[in-house]
Design a protein around this nucleic acid. Structure first.
Lengths: 276, 276
DNA sequence: AATTGAATTTAGAAAAACTCAACCTCAGCC
DNA sequence: GGCTGAGGTTGAGTTTTTCTAAATTCAATT
């Protein structure tokens, strides 16, 4: 029966590796499930191509059926977790969002909903709320104006650094003298920004890379270099003066900080966004 | 995830043993699944009582959700088995019905649908067509005029025996001189009939019991005794003269031979019943 | 020709599920 | 008041399923 889940995930996501990731197993496991399923039915569900698989027409017809069925089951499981007396809101968010955006807002959220138990889990990728045991997700993504989405703020980026360092940054070209702090998951922020403001990044000097954005922010506060700041994540630091934006150069990435909620927690999400 | 199926089955059928039977496992397995589920949710789903379990209110609310979800999944699986090119009709029937009623009708059914592959499986209990891989089921049951049911014939019973034996059976009371052939699964047929025709069965002599009705019919043909005949199952033998009904005494059991079909095979079922 | 991305293939390991058999626990019953 | 029986529980041991790891294939790309 796990084979059915494997098929559904692979069909929906368009690849065995992606399905493997969603189901937290190795691609080999998916291969085995699909093979077993194809043998059982006697029809091949996927066309094997050199770079990945493509659904056969048979598979294409089946996919919506299974997706709908598992969504239904996901709902039932949500309902199951919901019978417990103390309401729970499980929030999934990027590590950086969790530390730099959510953490300052959680106290108020808790104060306004004292009977609710909030818990936050850091994830690199937004989970499928219909399937995973999360109620809210907060991630940067391209807005798709689905009804489940609440756009919190546009993603705007600009360089930030410690106040002491700002003095030595008269213009964009002075950046060449400084270390650029780079977050691994947003490694191309600087490229995007450079292109928008017309700066030739090839003159850049040393870089320092971080696997956690919050760590890079910490280093920027300490004066270790210049960080590409995401407005929503550095606002607090700018307001308190720990960081400054030495030049303008506000650039929209096209993405946005988006809160997605399961239907059952939508009302709470709306009130959080409205009053928070 | 099997725990969810265990819960659904136990909730729908109202007992762990019944759920175990449906899922082809031992009751212990169900207990373990439910326990794990209750631990995970933190809420007890069943109230344990001395003679079985009863759903708690929490469990009651959840049951329809899960039943619907698994029904949906069952549909998807049916669709999956249906993508194969040669259409298949899997028929589930009582062993006796399969041998004595279906077998004489299958040739015509096959002739009228040459492209369809029919296969018959003998079961003691009617399967849940939404879950199991069967398309039709043919069983004796109480009519419930659900829309999926097609009533084939009323269940009428009366004693039958070999022609040679009929001569020595002038009246009901002569039955005491003969061996009664009894099928295990319909052991109370004789009691029911005796009550209806006002015969005192306590004078009965030897009995011979069979686990398969078809075997009992075979023995009746051989003159081994008097069998309680189900009209639909002995009609062929009576028409060909291999068996005779020595007295009248036609008694309705209240049940009927019922064909149930999945929606996707309903049209074929209708044509089978109409022209068959 | 080397590289890359994605799927496949195995054997072996880990985890889940199941069975078995003994035991419990009430309700109803002589 | 002690039996009986239906139905559920328990825990150890076993079977089955599922997963992983690492080597391998395959074809498109560099």
């Amino acid at each position: 029966m796990n084979a059915l889940r494997a098929f559904e995930a692979a069909a929906r996501l368009g690849g065995f590796s992606k399905a493997a990731e969603e189901l937290c197993v190795t691609p080999g496991a998916i291969t085995q499930h699909i093979k077993a399923l194809e043998e059982w039915v006697g029809v091949s569900l996927f066309e094997r191509r050199s770079h990945g698989v493509r659904l056969t027409s048979a598979g294409q017809g089946l996919q919506p059926e299974f997706t709908a069925a598992f969504d239904r089951l996901g709902e039932a499981v949500h309902a199951l977790k919901d019978v417990t007396d103390a309401p729970v809101v499980q929030i999934a968010a990027l590590p950086s969002v969790a530390q730099l955006w959510l953490s300052s807002r959680l106290p108020r959220l808790r104060a306004e909903n004292p009977q609710v138990q909030f818990s936050v889990t850091a994830l690199e990728q937004p989970p499928n709320l219909l399937r995973e045991m999360f109620d809210w997700s907060v991630f940067f993504d391209l807005p798709s104006d689905g009804p489940d989405e609440i756009i919190l703020e546009e993603d705007v980026i600009f360089p930030v650094c410690a106040p002491e360092m700002a003095a030595s940054l008269g213009g964009v070209n002075d950046l060449a003298q400084h270390t650029l702090l780079i977050d691994d998951t947003w490694a191309d922020d600087w490229d995007l920004w450079a292109q928008e403001v017309g700066w030739d990044r090839s003159f850049t000097t040393a870089n320092a890379r971080f696997s956690l954005y919050a760590l890079a922010v910490e280093e920027a506060r300490n004066g270790a270099g210049v960080l590409m700041g995401h407005e929503s994540l550095v606002r607090d630091d700018i307001e308190t003066g720990r960081l400054v934006a030495p030049f303008g150069g506000r650039v929209k990435t096209g993405r946005a900080l988006i809160l997605t909620s399961t239907p059952r927690r939508r009302a709470m999400a709306d009130s959080f966004v409205t009053f928070g």
